[in-house]
Design a protein around this nucleic acid. Structure first.
Length: 569
RNA sequence: CGGGACGUGGCGCAGCCUGGUAGCGCAUCUGCUUUGGGAGCAGAGGGUCGGAGGUUCAAAUCCUCUCGUCCCGACCA
């Protein structure tokens, strides 16, 4: 491809409203443009990256026997009503009416249609297993799109669905996907983790997420370097560090005027935060629930919701006053007739043993010293706290590491959640009707691209993993008007193409600096420069990062490129 | 949904507080020079100041409403 014929609008300055590194660089490099909040245009360079990612996905999906097809993105509401999601999902789903006033939806995922198809077309266990996939647009009316192409309202997704006659079959399909996904993310050059995740509203027994580290990520994972345990913090189990400080185990009120936060109370009483108890009041519908975690810990709302089996929200200050007779900041567990949940680390067999803490006294400007949780209240013990850096691994005891990540893929064991309501069943060997056991599996190609940029960049611009760069080689011809350089560049270009390299030949009538800056911004793995020494048959070859510029005879460029390619990530 | 910020040529911004002929840098076009790290000089074109309403002799500027975008939180298969 000749740069003069490519639409490649690069920018010198970061876009004003971009925060994430990947957002800035993808806009500056001429890969994407924003059309509206959470809606993006992919320009030629950006689309080349997407196509390369999608190609890898297709190859690996095909390798596990998955079949590509294409599903509609606009659906009549009734299948969604049959699975209940028409009501369950809410504002995140785009809804519209057709001219006949019939309810329609823009698909935010495709379990319903795939299962609908399976219910009509699959009759016998002999036709199973099946894995069907597509690379198709999804629509989600996100309350807050953010991070450039990281969280958007319309996006491409590879989604696949497995259909098996029984749970054992689902296991096989699930593991095939693990194989395929590992290969896909490896080939895309991503740093990634496969972590245990919350099946959430998808239902089903088990789920994993594929996560790539990034400061722009919206999730955190707990990782154990010793045994390999890896889980989203929304369900990661861990062993808390022992609490510090000592509190006499005799109940005693202490005046703590205007000391509302853990930090303030700890400083005032000259105790470490881990000698305090953090008491929070939640509303589960109409039912108030008090939760206790240690002062140095964070309660994780999803863990609480999973334990209770329903959603909760923090109580409003007025509710706290009405139910507990005190103001926010002085809440504690002693003397209350409320349902109380305490994190396991406060239990007698927890890391601190049976010991006393300081908690709110349910009286304004007062705390209680000497609270022993199992003596002074009757809590249910549960895993409520968010795993923290340095906590012990629940499997091997080694210190956990917490990392911020972007979700780039997920896999779910669905079971019969969709096949039952939509009547997708087959006859088994005995002629008995059995609901199909399903799994669903997603990958966000644009998130792969963004994650790659989040991880692969420097001051100058993007450093693409070689497999998904828009071009393999960026051939910079310094002087567009120099006939000698044109001749050498043409022969290098032809040779590289013959060898199978995708090559961007920058023969624009621009100054050298402009072309170099653009090459660095766009981030192709190898740069070949045809300049001053073209007359002597000498060109320069250098990797985008981690190497040096070498002068080589023009007729050996292909070998040098191959060597640098080999060394690139 | 709660909180905050911002909307001024294509891009990045100043001007607003204290109302009085709309500016800067980059980009674009023309010419000359330059030519291996986002060129220099000279000239040119391009803006309903997000929109609507109001106050005023006069509104980018003050007031009200509204739309859009971003950030924090909430939410999120």
């Amino acid at each position: 491809m000749r740069a003069s014929q490519l639409f490649m609008p690069t920018l010198k300055q970061d876009p004003a409203d971009a925060e994430a590194v990947s957002h800035k660089l993808l806009v500056r490099g001429g890969f994407v443009r924003q059309f509206a909040a959470g809606i993006y245009i992919f320009l030629p360079l950006g689309w080349r990256v997407m196509e390369r990612i999608n190609r890898i996905i297709r190859e690996e999906m095909n390798a596990i026997g998955a079949l590509e097809l294409s599903m509609p993105t606009m659906h009549p509401a009734d299948v969604w009503q049959q699975t209940g999601r028409w009501h369950d999902i809410g504002d995140e789903m785009f809804r519209l009416k057709d001219r006949g006033d019939r309810d329609m939806v823009l698909a935010m995922t495709h379990e319903e249609v795939f299962t609908w198809l399976a219910s009509r077309e699959l009759r016998s266990y002999r036709e199973l297993p099946q894995i069907w996939y597509q690379i198709q647009i999804k629509f989600r009316d996100e309350p807050r799109p953010k991070g450039g192409i990281l969280r958007v309202r319309e996006f491409l997704m590879k989604d696949s669905y497995s259909f098996d006659v029984d749970v054992a079959g689902l296991e096989v399909s699930y593991h095939k996907h693990i194989q395929a996904y590992d290969r896909i993310f490896q080939r895309c050059g991503l740093v990634y983790y496969r972590v245990e995740s919350d099946p959430g509203m998808m239902g089903g027994a088990q789920a994993h997420e594929y996560m790539s580290p990034s400061a722009a990520g919206e999730d955190r994972v707990a990782l154990c370097n010793a045994c390999g345990y890896a889980a989203n913090v929304e369900l990661a189990r861990s062993v808390a560090t022992p609490p510090e400080g000592r509190v006499p185990d005799v109940l005693e009120e202490v005046a703590t005027p205007h000391m509302r936060t853990i930090k303030e109370v700890a400083a005032f009483l000259e105790l470490p935060a881990s000698s305090l108890i953090k008491s929070l009041l939640w509303m589960a519908g109409d039912e108030p629930v008090l939760t206790l975690v240690r002062g140095d810990q964070e309660l994780h709302q999803r863990k609480l919701e999973r334990y209770l089996g329903r959603t909760v929200r923090p109580a409003h200050p007025e509710e706290v006053e009405r139910l507990l007779g005190t103001e926010v900041g002085f809440v504690g567990p002693v003397g209350l007739e409320l349902r109380t949940l305490a994190d396991q680390s406060l239990a007698p067999d927890g890391p601190g043993g049976r010991r006393a803490y300081v908690a709110g006294a349910n009286r304004a400007h007062t705390h209680l010293r000497g609270v022993v949780v199992d003596r002074d209240s009757r809590p249910e013990w549960a895993d409520l706290r968010e795993a923290a850096e340095g906590d012990g691994c629940s499997q091997c005891g080694h210190a956990l590491h917490i990392e911020q990540v972007i979700e780039v893929g997920n896999i779910f064991k669905l079971g019969t959640k969709y096949s039952l309501p939509l009547g997708a069943s087959v006859l088994d060997e005995k002629g008995e009707e059995r609901p199909i056991v399903m799994g669903s599996y997603g990958i966000g190609p644009a998130r792969i691209a963004a994650a790659a940029v989040e991880h692969g960049h420097d001051q100058k611009g993007i450093v693409w993993p070689k497999a998904i760069a828009p071009f393999d080689v960026h051939l910079v011809q310094v002087q567009a008007a120099d006939a000698t350089q044109t001749g050498v560049a043409q022969s290098v270009y032809t040779r590289l193409n013959e060898e199978g390299w995708e090559c961007l030949w920058d023969e624009r009538d621009e100054r050298a600096g402009v072309k170099f800056k653009d090459a660095e911004l766009i981030g192709c793995p190898v740069r070949v420069t045809v300049g001053k020494k073209a007359g002597d048959g000498i060109v320069e070859v250098e990797p985008r990062i981690g190497g040096t510029r070498e002068e080589v005879p023009a007729d050996t460029v292909a070998e040098r490129v191959a060597a640098l390619w080999e060394a690139a990530r």
